[in-house]
Design a binder for these strands. Structure first.
Lengths: 227, 227
DNA sequence: TCAACTTGTCACAATCTCGTCACTATTGAT
DNA sequence: ATCAATAGTGACGAGATTGTGACAAGTTGA
């Protein structure tokens, strides 16, 4: 059974979320303020945290920072909730390393989808980001490549990028979406940033790099060519 | 079943529109404020959005801008509603890329007509529509060919061309129409461009190329010969 | 403080796309 | 069968897109 911590001060939303999660047979714990949330996280080590940014006593950003400092909690995936569609908050959140975000009001259905998507790539109780594909395993900025029997260290950005591509294996991801999801860019910056990072990834990946395919006019796509 | 999102703060109008749409067997979801509308759009990905410009919390323009930033929603056709015949609003809306507009008060009958017209039109105009034919699926410059269990990368132009042909499966498309729709040509350029692209398409399609038939003296036609 | 690392940007190189053209092949009416 | 119209094909070059190496600014950790 997976446990999810809900840190949200509005009682209605807390209950709504909690109800929905439990109906999907997650176990939930919740708190209406930041400080309690933090100590609940430390004592229970949940599998995922849904964290409102506007919290009494200690706000979401503070809580998040604290979580990331403690080795027991630093790898727990966090979905941030922002009351306003404040671009700044979202970007700040993503930069701090939140795994996903949702702006209120949101549909419970969407939250459930995100929770499941996030948990799918998180299999350990310590909650590090892991993807197990046929021949590789992504975990904590490291790519374990079984065929080559070795570990490849990735930078955080490279990791994020590869993660998204692998999660959507077989589906071409367009440049703008990637820029938005990995970097939080809004506008179509006519940027070589994405290309450069893809290049760096490919360099590190060696022969596995053939899995990252260019889809001209669209973006990039991961395809497992090992099988 | 096609889903339509109604973003309109006046309850009477919302219900009226919703009633009319449902009578025509569309499925509807609705919201009285912009923010909720936006998140509904993101979680439900409707086929069309009817968007009032004067909305509480987040106005129609804002909602529209956000919709166009997200790849999941950026191609959804939008009909804008303006309270008064505010010329400026309409122009601004159309410039932003709204697909149609209507000024209040409007007749439900007219709205229905526009909705249907737009749904028919937009299906062909956006490059990202997915078409599932019996053995084929077109998405993001890629052709998924189920019988051959493989993906074929197409260039943007090839994609556009094939899309139009497949959408009008069984109906011969004449050269001028194709040149106009894919290339935006006005005059009958006595050009080999179309032929060349058809040839390139056929090359990529392999045995599937038999589906693209030459209709001498007219143009080309797609016909599913696999079934 | 300094060295090592990360990351975004730029300039230039490599590659791909696509319209055009010259030429060939096919078609269908006479 | 002949011929003119139509369609198919291969090649080329301009322009667009992507790949690459270098660099500088910013971060991190010792």
């Amino acid at each position: 059974m997976q446990t999810i911590l809900i840190a949200e001060d509005e009682k209605d939303i807390r209950q709504l979320v909690s109800f929905n999660l439990e109906r999907e047979s997650f176990s939930t714990i919740s708190s209406g303020d930041g400080k309690t949330a933090l100590s609940l996280a430390r004592s229970n080590i949940p599998d995922l945290i849904i964290l409102d940014l506007m919290l009494p006593v200690m706000d979401g950003f503070e809580v998040f920072k604290e979580l990331r400092l403690d080795s027991r909690t630093k790898d727990i995936p966090v979905i941030m909730l922002t009351a306003k569609a404040q671009l700044d908050d979202i970007i700040a959140g993503l930069e701090m390393g939140a795994d996903d975000y949702l702006t209120k009001p949101f549909s419970p259905k969407e939250l459930m989808l995100r929770v499941k998507a996030l948990l799918k790539r998180v299999k350990t109780s310590t909650g590090s980001t892991i993807i197990e594909s046929s021949q590789i395993r992504l975990d904590k900025n490291t790519l374990h490549c079984f065929i080559r029997e070795e570990k490849i260290d990735l930078t955080p950005t490279e990791f994020k990028l590869l993660l998204i591509l692998i999660e959507r294996e077989g589906v071409p991801q367009n440049r703008n979406d990637l820029l938005r999801e990995v970097w939080g860019y809004r506008e179509t910056a006519n940027s070589r940033t994405l290309d450069t990072h893809v290049k760096r990834l490919r360099e590190k990946l060696g022969e596995l790099s053939r899995c990252i395919e260019t889809v001209r006019g669209v973006g990039y796509q991961y395809r497992n060519i090992i099988s």
